[in-house]
Nucleic acid binder design. Structure first.
Length: 723
RNA sequence: GGGCAUUUAGCUCAGUGGUAGAGCGCCUCGUUCACAUCGAGGAGGUCGCAGGUUCAAGUCCUGCAAUGCCCACCA
């Protein structure tokens, strides 16, 4: 048997909840734009509204809260701004699954009813997120909380879109997307997974246009897309084909002449060294089509069946068509051979259906100039990246950036603020519309106009988050009416932002780019990348693996303060941590014991104070001098380590001082001269709990309130300084 | 394929040039005296491998290996 108590510690819960309400009601969490104090602003990365917060969130929020509490005690006007993200595709997928269980679907409900229910679901999920935040002790300014689909961000996002549009940075054009033939929707790259599969590699002979008795043999696993062939691609260094580059071949069945083009990416040693090029069905080929100005044709439709390009094979599913096409090629004498190969097939993460790459009309933002400017901004060093090398990683990505596809075929999100005349109904024909037939507007321009069906990419609004949360560009009150914008002027740029490295491109790079574009300023002065908490095998936490550790479990067993301390020990920038329930329990137990130790120290010093105690504070005795010296070193180191954002060192430092220096040494020694030492004991404990407060806010407040002559809360007392 | 990171005590991790650290676990001893959710003490490491720089290297440089992550992809 082990000695870990498995029951809930109700006493702790009640106490913590009580203190939290006390802080919240006192207004200590609120930022004050009118305050003359220097400001310190921290932006909480808005969690996705798709489920409960996990341990990684808990760590992130604990880090933010420690810094916020520290800065407040340092005399700053602190803004810790909370918010949540609508998380387009993730939310929609989670929500649709839930609907499916209730026997409902998008088709059955229709857009309006679906959205109504989606907002209800959002409120439901939000409750758990909000509850966890409060449980963890987050000292956020709840009066400024924002949701990405709220009125203020909605208007900000519209201004963002309009600005790009007016500067001619937005366009609509063909784009290759991953398409799930079963779900009948485009899906994002992140929703695609790769499965290893055995397939046949077919070798097909294409006659040369000039001399039909000579052939180029290509190798493909997908002969069914050959009806869309726009070229044959070879490696320019390949001696076999070098002289043929620029020549033309005839595509079997369709008898179209297509060029032989050169591309370094073709692997000389694979298959025959020559591959067919289908811009509508392959990402690389799509890029090549742009470079070589090739025709983009679709051999597969959105239903996953062959299009009428395929002649006699039209209407067949791609897998059915495959063998039949090769048989026909054999009859024509154009089939060379087939081999077995093992390769990765892309499938839909949700239904495991093999995905198709298809061409679809999507909205884009031309970002290359913005990205270049952002790289220059990063070079100035105005953003302090932790770890440092992320400045380069992000710059490299920005340098190689592609146009940003901002449209998604979803319902949950900011609807694209583009309106068309109802007389022009065809989706495709809207691409080349005259200006008079299109309007960019938040609300309907009036009768006879219909809004674009798609919504904006979630990151389009998230990328604007540092601005939109502060009411940029004009300030909006809760009713959506413009107001003077003191907040933005005071709190922007943010002093501190934090996230997991996972979304450094999707989110961080874009915030820098967008902020630079609109304000010529950095969005944040410090960018902290924490590590990822993983399981003991190094795998990410996931629901399907069931390898996660819930923050709620740790809080129930060890209390919030102990859970926070546990998480700080994993907060080294950029370093992943391996975690299991057992390991978290070990640490949680240790810090729970520490909280108990601290309560006992306070009991000894304050509750059991001798009646004849000395009253004036002095450090004459050698023990007093020693503890004062140690306290000064601790103050110096804790302060230094928080300033350099080494919270793991800061929390460890004060832990070590309280337990092993104050309790084990000084307090024991003081027992011989208790009355004389009393003022020093009190002083050292008082300063110690202030140093600990950013990390263990609850127990420190509890002990603080035992002292006489104090501020209303330890939250608003001053940070210890060396004499 | 490209990029990045990690490798230190049984486990999880600190330690950015100067006598190897923490927590948990393990062993011994100790409960009237704030605390057994504790105290005192102990065992346990050639700091992944091989070179190099330096008076001095876990720490800096080069190479290698293993593991992991991110990005792009296997036609």
């Amino acid at each position: 048997m082990h000695d870990i108590p498995m029951s809930k510690n109700d006493d702790n819960q009640k106490t913590e909840k009580g203190w939290y309400e006390f802080w919240d009601k006192s207004g200590f969490f609120k930022a004050d734009p009118n305050s003359k104090k220097p400001k310190y602003s921290l932006l909480i990365p808005p969690p996705n509204l798709t489920g409960e917060l996990h341990l990684g969130h808990a760590m992130q929020h604990s880090i933010l809260d420690a810094i916020a509490r520290y800065k407040r005690m340092q005399g700053f006007d602190v803004l810790l701004l909370p918010g949540v993200d609508h998380a387009g595709i993730q939310f929609e997928s989670t929500f649709d699954k839930k609907l499916a269980k209730e026997g409902l679907s998008k088709q059955k409900l229709g857009r309006e009813k679906w959205l109504e229910k989606a907002w209800e679901f959002k409120d439901e999920v939000y409750k758990s997120v909000s509850a966890t935040w409060r449980f963890m002790g987050l000292s956020a300014d709840w009066s400024r909380e924002v949701f990405t689909l709220d009125e203020a961000p909605r208007r900000a996002v519209f201004e963002e879109f309009k600005a790009y549009f007016e500067k001619d940075l937005i366009y609509k054009g063909p784009y290759i997307v991953q398409w799930c033939p079963k779900d009948q929707t485009a899906i994002e790259d992140v929703e695609v997974e790769y499965l290893e599969q055995k397939d046949k590699l077919y070798f097909v002979k294409y006659p040369l246009a000039k001399n039909k008795n000579k052939f180029v043999t290509i190798a493909t696993v997908r002969p069914e897309t050959m009806f869309a062939d726009a070229a044959i691609t070879v490696n320019p260094k390949d001696k076999r084909y070098k002289d043929l580059i620029g020549e033309k071949v005839v595509v079997p069945f369709v008898n179209r002449e297509v060029p032989i083009i050169a591309d370094d990416a073709v692997d000389v040693s694979f298959g025959s060294g020559a591959v067919k090029c289908d811009p509508a069905h392959d990402l690389d080929d799509f890029r090549r089509a742009k470079d070589h100005n090739l025709q983009i044709l679709a051999a597969i439709g959105k239903d996953g069946k062959l299009t009428d390009l395929a002649g006699e094979f039209t209407g067949l599913k791609s897998l059915e068509a495959r063998e039949k096409i090769f048989e026909s090629l054999e009859k024509m004498g154009l089939a060379e051979k087939s081999e077995e190969i093992v390769h990765n097939v892309s499938v839909c993460e949700r239904c495991k259906t093999p995905t198709e790459l298809l061409i679809s009309e999507e909205w884009f933002v031309k970002v290359s100039d913005m990205a270049k400017d952002a790289v220059k901004l990063i070079k100035t060093g105005k953003i302090n990246f932790l770890p440092e090398n992320y400045a380069k990683i992000i710059s490299d990505w920005l340098i190689n950036i592609h146009d940003w596809c901002i449209s998604r075929s979803l319902w949950w999100g900011h609807r694209i603020p583009v309106w068309y005349r109802t007389s022009i109904m065809s989706h495709e024909s809207r691409v080349k519309l005259a200006d008079r037939d299109i309007r960019v507007s938040l609300e309907s321009p009036g009768e006879g106009w219909v809004q674009d069906e798609q919504v904006l990419d979630t990151w389009f609004s998230s990328g604007l988050w540092p601005l939109s949360t502060l009411g940029w560009p004009f300030g909006v009150n809760p009713q959506g009416k413009p107001q003077k914008n003191k907040e933005f002027e005071k709190y922007f740029p943010w002093d501190f932002e934090i996230t997991a490295p996972e979304i450094k491109y999707l989110w961080i790079a874009r915030m820098i780019m967008i902020s630079d574009f609109f304000t010529k300023q950095v969005p944040f002065k410090t960018m902290f990348f924490h590590g990822m908490l993983r399981d003991l095998q190094g795998r990410k936490f996931s629901k399907s693996l069931g390898n996660g550790v819930e923050p709620g479990y740790l809080i129930d067993n060890w209390g919030v303060d102990a859970t926070r301390m546990t998480l700080y020990s994993y907060s080294v920038p950029g370093r992943d941590g391996r975690v299991s329930r057992q390991i978290m329990d070990e640490r949680g137990k240790n810090f729970r014991n520490f909280a108990t130790k601290l309560r006992n120290i306070a009991k000894f010093i304050i509750d059991l104070k001798p009646e004849d105690s000395a009253t004036s504070l002095s450090f004459k005795h050698k023990d007093d001098k020693w503890v004062k010296e140690e306290l000064d070193i601790t103050i110096k180191n804790v302060t230094k380590n928080i300033e350099s954002l080494n919270l793991h060192l800061a929390s460890d430092e004060i832990y070590d001082f309280i337990w092993h220096k104050l309790a084990d040494k000084y307090l024991e020694q003081s027992k011989n001269r208790r009355s004389e030492a009393q003022p020093v004991l009190e002083h050292v404990l008082y300063e110690s709990i202030k140093l600990l407060h950013p990390f263990m806010p609850f127990v420190t407040e509890e002990i603080y309130q035992k002292f006489d002559k104090i501020q209303k809360s330890i939250m608003v007392d001053v940070w210890p300084k060396n004499a």
